[in-house]
Computed example of a mutant assay.
Amino acid sequence: MRLLNILVIAALIVAATYVYKIKFDSTLQAERVAKMHLEIRKQRNAIASLRAEWAELETPGRIQDLAERHLKLQPMQSNQIDTFDNLPPRPPAVAPAAADPIGAMLTPSAPETTGSIPAPAAR
């Protein structure tokens, strides 16, 4: 009977210690969660202030003032616009069946006999 009482008391002490450890770990985790929530709130406030600052920096009036102050730009004149007649000609049309469209544009239509590179022999 006495041995049974000692075993029960030992089991109660072990159980109480285990419960205390679980409570301590859960309290520690709750503190970590609270710290993370605080850090998240701080980061969201920082993001909000940066967005407000960015919105202030990108206002069109401010950019216009900076452009006028720092860039020596002048209004566009009508004689700066060119006509379509002065555009360069279009590149030659490439056959859609060509395996290498860029090579087809570079290869002349009539290959010259002098200076041309011979095709490799089949093995």
Rank of each mutant, 00 (worst) to 15 (best):
L28S: 09
A16W: 01
L87Y: 10
M105N: 02
A10N: 09
N79L: 05
I81T: 12
Q77Y: 04
L87D: 09
P60C: 04
R69T: 08
P91N: 06
V19Y: 04
N45W: 02
I47T: 11
Q43D: 10
A46V: 10
R69N: 07
G115H: 02
V14R: 00
M76C: 05
P92Y: 02
A16I: 13
V94C: 11
Q43S: 13
N5H: 13
K72V: 07
W54N: 13
W54Q: 15
P96L: 13
A46N: 10
P91D: 08
V33E: 13
Y20I: 06
A98W: 00
K35D: 13
Q74H: 13
M76I: 12
S109K: 02
R51L: 03
L73K: 10
P91E: 06
A52I: 09
S109E: 15
I117M: 03
T59K: 15
I47E: 11
E68V: 10
K72E: 06
A10T: 11
A48S: 14
R90E: 01
I63W: 08
P88F: 01
G103P: 06
A99H: 01
T113K: 02
L38V: 10
P101W: 03
S26I: 02
L4Q: 15
G103D: 07
M76E: 15
R69D: 09
I13C: 04
Q29D: 09
A30D: 08
I63R: 14
L73P: 04
T27Y: 03
A55V: 05
A16E: 00
V19R: 01
Y18F: 10
L4W: 07
L57S: 13
D25V: 04
Q74F: 07
